[in-house]
Write a protein that binds this DNA or RNA. Structure first.
Lengths: 204, 204, 204, 204
DNA sequence: CTCTAACCGAGACGGTACGTCTCGTCTTTTG
DNA sequence: CAAAAGACGAGACGTACCGTCTCGGTTAGAG
């Protein structure tokens, strides 16, 4: 996310052109939407943005980093999750918002970005810290509060519980085994909280 | 998985060389282990196997397909899962075997293959049908039997439950947020079955 | 002159395309005539010849070498110098033929090629062995015979005498101080043979 | 030689920095000596001189013009030729001085500059007027006096005679066919004056 | 003693060409 | 007819300089 940094201090020399920065992000985002990650080449971005290749290389280290910046630029979404105090409701709301974002082009592109990240550690890091981490923090907060209120088991490992919620969603996003429907999110959250044992056997 | 098919019918002309096929798979597997998916190029395989590029193109449609064939060739494992009749034990055993396989090089390579599959539908399909499906079928059987015995809730959607088990594992494989430890598998299976609500609130 | 070599032995693999070789030389020669040496870029040749850059790099080591090959391809001239037995006549004929070739585009281009050769030793060598040497050999022969016949001084250093003939011509070609006129050649040859001392002083 | 001009009129505004001008010429000369003309790039000069590119462009129109200025700055030599009244001695002295200057790095660089001048008319002009012309004028004077004294043939075309002297030297400098030895200069001057016909045939 | 015009550094930028890489196809000879 | 060898067109890579363009900060004579 190198290229995203704003020029803080006014230093000597010609300042960075904000117009150019935006033209690059817009061009990359367009290419991403139209042809997916494989359509992102430094040359195609440069040509579309009317910008020199060197300028792109100057501010971004790889095509992956331009792609993720362009993704955030285009699909930046608010993280305003509700906080009703009811853990089931809050978690479901969060999962529905994520699933909603992943239906449509944004989801396909995120899948490709995650795919690319498997052979681009820097991209992987940017996705983790720039995309997943903020969401996980909100979710962790909701879970922690529910533990504090005594709604959830105290011995719980929070990262594992979060993997139980996010894991299946990203698994579906990536394997496309089954659709990312609202019903899926509902049963996922319910199952995760209540378990899947039959009532009889749960009373031990 | 085109290249993996054995030559059944004896047709006219010079038969396909089995030695060549194996040389290609061994070379590709070596490259995969040494340098990951990005080290797999048709040219590098051809050079290493002492084989012409055209011969590879003749039997495999893409580098992804050679890679997955080479992966299966090198890391093929038995699917002999225990069947004790205890759903918790059986599921845990299955997850532990998968996690064990994913620790080490095989896991890293599978992550890369899944990554590549995001921009290679054919590779995605081969991974689903050749790798995931067999495991899911065994898991589905165990779950179905537990439902039949009344251990699990009858209304359960089996694919969702399987996503709850496999999803977090693949999520950790791909995001590398946290390690694929045995403890993780244990808590994952326990949480999935019993839920995470505190005992007090679960008696409603 | 690497690319000029003809494929002698019929070896395995696809043979070199003669059509491609000629297309490259024609394109390069056209560019040379139209825009001089600076118009010769590997990219422009490739574009004009409908050929890949790699193919050019495969057969020629530098743009200079393509240029000189293209020059010879386009301006190859016969070396049929007359041999009358009269040294003055023969030398003048040779110089007139060379000067004639250097008037017009071929001379301008040769000047540029010699210029480039100052920073490209390989090009320099090709010009020496492929262009100058054959002419010098013919000239050396004429001179040697004149020495044998007793027309020229026996103690003469032949290379120096040849430099006295060719040097002024190339000097004019390169500095453009004065035109390469036929009168120039006539006085040059006469002066070189007879000297410039006044008759009075020459009889010492 | 634009950049070499001294600031005559004192105009308003900050005057041109002499320190900067010298830093540029020194840097360029160093680069020229170390890596030849190809090492001369505006960027490398700017970096080495601690100067902005724009400042260089402001005072010199091209890299060729900086190069030639740097050459004169570093290798400026006196034009004090002896004038003994003996044409053979005087011409030989002049040629020996020139040949002496051309042995060593200065000659190699001059060859490269002349080479570059083939595709840079302005550079060609600067070399002619700034380097060759002063020498030719001295030589022309010596020749003219010899004609006046009756030592040389009256019908002689002086520029042609000068090309007979300078041409072979520059030819050797540029083609590196043979070394620029003192013996070469001696025989060159002698041959030029006396001719190469054998005594017998010269008396016709 | 301020004003102001020109100089100068640093560095961003669009552009052209470089030489390299790998792809997937094509065209031969060899077994 | 399979396979090896290798030529080839295509196109992106990342780099080097080009020449131009802001900027901010001198520097010295003119008012």
């Amino acid at each position: 996310m190198t290229g995203g940094k704003t020029v803080e201090t006014s230093r000597v020399g010609r300042p960075r052109s904000e117009k150019t920065r935006l033209a690059i992000l817009e061009a990359a985002a367009d290419l991403l939407v139209e042809g997916g990650f494989s359509a992102i080449t430094i040359e195609s971005i440069a040509a579309r943005a009317g910008v020199s290749k060197v300028t792109i290389y100057k501010w971004w280290p790889s095509r992956g980093s331009v792609a993720i910046d362009a993704y955030f630029h285009r699909f930046r979404q608010t993280l305003t999750f509700p906080d009703t105090g009811n853990v089931a409701e809050d978690l479901l709301a969060q999962m529905l918002i994520l699933i909603g974002a992943f239906r449509g082009r944004a989801g396909e592109i995120m899948a490709e970005l995650i795919g690319q990240a498997q052979s681009d550690p820097e991209l992987a890091d940017t996705i983790r810290t720039g995309w997943m981490q903020p969401r996980r923090e909100v979710t962790a907060l909701v879970i922690q509060r529910a533990i504090d209120r005594g709604e959830l088991r105290p011995g719980l490992t929070i990262p594992i519980l979060m993997d139980e919620l996010y894991g299946p969603i990203y698994f579906r996003l990536i394997t496309r085994y089954e659709p990312l429907s609202d019903e899926f999110a509902q049963e996922l959250v319910r199952n995760t909280l209540e378990g899947v044992l039959s009532t009889r056997s749960s009373i031990k």
